[in-house]
Design a binder for these strands. Structure first.
Length: 510
RNA sequence: GGCUGUAUAGCUCAGUUGGUUAGAGCACUCGCUUCAUACGUGAGGGGUCAUAAGUUCAAAUCUUAUUACAGCCA
């Protein structure tokens, strides 16, 4: 019952990992971690898309075989996962045997059910985009025909298999209608619906112009179209085609396919159609998030303003980067990365608000309570703020079920603000001279708040959250959400508090 | 060209079914505090809610038009 299967798209290995990849996977990582702490059995999948003509050509250019090439570049994405502390349970590569088997089985099912037929395809083909364009879509530039994306096109006539997508229009519209949350956010849902309403053409699902791909069963001339190959990865990881195996039974259909807004159509139109045609269950939800701009400008290779997650982590810190990406903008919208905003989040929210709260409370415990968490005598006010903090879990849970990461963090920080006010109102430094028992209770309450904040923040900023919990000596097994209603134990000795979120200080180089 | 959205404080945005003086964070000004990472806290200034017309006892919220921007499609 309590299973949760979440996926990132598989990333095309020909690209270098950038902030967009990190962002998609980060969102999934937070949801995966949250669900695990909330008692779910989680399967979190990411991976790399390694086929296609571009990969074949890149490998040729380097004079190595494509497999060797993808072995190398795929590693960049596994490195990114390590760097960003992603907790994926599997990392799929489309060049793996298990994946080829899955693709071929899915194909056979489609064929068996009569949804695939062989025909001829002719049209303007772009190698770069791996897509066909109609005459009317092309742009004329200096007498040369170019794809709308600016890529070169060539007239190609080839034999191709087709998937009868046109027959699925009504069923898809019914699906969207009956499941209002199937596509999120709303704006993307509208787009997809209007796209489907405009009418669907059968989809060319094989290629003969190159060979680096999954072979079509019983016809070696053809390899599968990129999206049939790529989308199937969501099944591969669960052991498909063995539908009787435990993983498949447990996790399929996926609870959430997280995608960037550029590939919503493949996930919200083609994928459900392919699944329905092959008799498989459908995923429950597709969420398309927005894109980042850099200091207000669109990010593009030609502008040279691509943001490398490695740079961010090195410069601002891992959890600072994770926090910023999730806190700064509402998920689903585009967002702007600016140096100033990044620094402001790092210093205001992390260093000042929560970091300093931990530091000011625990320093007093360290200096005035012989480093021992005091015995409390809680009054209504103390209990109130502790309960507010505990109840925050429910808010965060509701927010995350809708992928509202920024609201979740906002609700935690609201309590952090209350916590700092609590310290000011109760002024334990004054109680030091007048009422040691009361001082102890106030400091205990602060410790309890640190415990709750630490537990709540684990999905977002796992390293820092675990440092927070370490500071007050919370045992590993008492850090799940079930434990949030426990109480901080008195009499436990703590170490000298360490700064968790250092302030970011401007470097001379600007 | 068609469709769908967006337009609210200097900046980034929230504003549920129309209902009292339009909210938050950052930035700014002034007070308080000194435990803490020069950190915290309180108060304050700042908005003709894109423009115009309309519906209504009442509009940031509904309708229409215009302008700007974004996305999707062609």
């Amino acid at each position: 019952m309590n299973n949760y299967y979440i996926t990132t798209p598989i990333y095309y290995v020909n690209d270098k990992p950038h902030i967009g990849h990190a962002y998609t996977s980060l969102a999934c990582d937070i949801l995966a971690r949250f669900k695990r702490l909330d008692g779910f059995d989680v399967h979190f999948l990411t991976g790399t898309d390694e086929h296609g003509q571009k990969v074949e050509k890149s490998a040729q250019a380097k004079n190595i075989n494509p497999q060797e090439f993808t072995d190398n570049v795929s590693q960049n994405f596994r490195d990114l996962a390590d760097l960003m502390n992603f907790s994926n349970d599997d990392f799929i590569r489309t060049t793996e045997n298990r994946h080829k088997q899955a693709c071929q089985k899915l194909w056979q099912e489609l064929e068996k059910n009569g949804h695939i037929y062989l025909d001829k395809y002719s049209g303007w083909y772009s190698v770069r985009d791996e897509a066909y364009y109609t005459e009317s879509e092309l742009i004329d530039k200096d007498g040369k025909k170019l794809a709308p994306t600016g890529a070169e096109v060539e007239w190609v006539e080839e034999e191709s298999y087709f998937f009868d997508l046109s027959k699925w229009q009504d069923k898809l519209l019914k699906l969207y209608d009956e499941n209002p949350d199937f596509i999120a956010p709303k704006s993307r849902r509208n787009e997809v619906i209007s796209f489907v309403k405009d009418g669907l053409k059968d989809l060319s699902v094989s290629r003969t112009a190159f060979s680096w791909g999954v072979k079509v069963p019983n016809n070696d001339k053809h390899i599968m179209y990129v999206w049939v190959d790529a989308l199937t990865n969501y099944l591969t990881t669960l052991g498909y085609p063995d539908e009787k195996n435990k993983k498949f039974e447990k996790y399929w259909g996926a609870d959430l396919h997280m995608v960037g807004k550029d590939i919503i159509r493949f996930h919200a139109v083609y994928w459900p159609a392919l699944l329905m045609a092959s008799g498989l269950d459908l995923p429950k939800r597709i969420f398309a998030h927005g894109w980042w701009t850099n200091e207000g400008e669109k990010i593009s290779k030609s502008l040279g303003n691509v943001i490398d997650p490695v740079d961010l982590v090195e410069k601002y810190g891992l959890d600072q980067t994770r926090y910023f990406l999730m806190r700064e903008i509402s998920f689903g919208n585009d967002g702007d990365f600016s140096r100033q905003a990044m620094i402001s989040r790092t210093n205001s929210d992390l260093a000042n608000d929560i970091g300093n709260f931990c530091q000011r409370s625990l320093s007093m415990v360290f200096k005035n309570c012989e480093s021992i968490i005091p015995n409390p005598n809680l009054n209504d006010g103390d209990n109130e703020i502790i309960n507010n903090a505990k109840q925050c879990l429910e808010t965060v849970r509701l927010n995350l079920d809708k992928q509202e990461f920024n609201k979740a963090l906002e609700s935690i920080w609201k309590i952090v603000g209350q916590a700092n006010k609590y310290v000011d109102d109760n002024a334990p430094w004054a109680l030091k001279n007048t009422d040691l028992d009361r001082m102890g209770t106030v400091l205990y309450t602060c410790g309890e708040l640190i415990r709750i904040f630490g537990i709540l923040l684990q999905p977002f900023i796992p390293n820092s959250a675990s440092k927070m919990l370490d500071l007050i000596a919370i045992p590993e097994e008492q850090r799940t959400f079930k434990n949030i209603n426990n109480s901080l134990q008195s009499g436990v000795k703590i170490d000298k508090p360490q700064v968790i979120f250092p302030r970011y200080v401007e470097q001379d180089d600007g």
